[in-house]
């Protein structure tokens, strides 16, 4: 007499392990779909700028805008090095680049919040360049659009910095290997996405149209 074992499809689903390669493809697709959904949010803000500002823009510090953009690009470069380091088992480059990317991101955040938003109401010049902005959120469509765009972007910068610090912390504990480092790859893609958004926001806020005092 043979023993009868009950075997349901439910058991199959739990017993079967998804191959890592398949899981990675799903992860990547999921991340890109998430970023695509975010595109609607940033796209709406970008469009709002053109509808409300038209051929004008507030008189913002060109030097701060250019410097902040350069720092964010540099941060993206370090994030790229961080990912390459993790993918090649270069632990030193991985950890050092992660910290540098987070540092550059923090400098960018400070430049937007402390200098451009001027949350502490400071004033001052360096080599004839005005260091602190004057635009307030209540300054009509200029203030409203500027703070909505930079605020939403700054929120993403902040969350990106938190993610970078998490992978740095986990990396120090040997959490990632050249074969398995999805956390690093996902953080890098997210951080570069934040950079891509700024690539469009920077000319829209600082360069396009005539400056209005």
């Amino acid at each position: 007499m043979s023993a009868v074992t009950t075997h349901s499809p439910h058991d199959d689903a739990h017993g079967h392990e998804v191959p890592y390669e398949t899981q990675m493809r799903s992860n990547r697709l999921g991340l890109w779909m998430f970023m695509f959904s975010e595109l609607f949010l940033f796209g709406a803000l970008f469009t709002t700028r053109f509808v409300l500002w038209g051929n004008t823009r507030p008189a913002l510090s060109q030097e701060i805008g250019l410097l902040a953009t350069g720092i964010l690009l540099l941060s993206s470069f370090f994030m790229y090095r961080c990912e390459v380091g993790a993918a090649n088992g270069d632990q030193k480059t991985f950890l050092r680049s992660a910290l540098l990317a987070a540092l550059m991101g923090t400098i960018f955040f400070i430049m937007v919040v402390v200098m451009e938003w001027n949350v502490f109401g400071l004033s001052g010049e360096l080599f004839g360049i005005e260091l602190f902005g004057h635009l307030k959120p209540s300054d009509g469509v200029y203030g409203g659009v500027f703070y909505a765009m930079t605020g939403m972007h700054a929120l993403h910068v902040l969350s990106g910095i938190a993610l970078i610090l998490i992978i740095w912390w986990n990396g120090r504990r040997g959490f990632f290997t050249p074969e398995r480092h999805w956390g690093v790859e996902a953080t890098a893609i997210y951080w570069h996405y934040v950079d891509v958004v700024w690539v469009f926001f920077y000319p829209a806020l600082y360069l396009m149209g005539h400056a209005v005092k």
Binding site: M79, Y80, E179, H192, D195, V196
Partner: peptide, 29 residues
Amino acid sequence: LLFIIAVVKAAIIVQNFMHIARLWREESH
């Protein structure tokens, strides 16, 4: 012109930094 430059910059980042090609590549890395 500014919009075209922004699109080119974004394309460079998406291609070189974000590795969009990995989406339809077979291997894991």
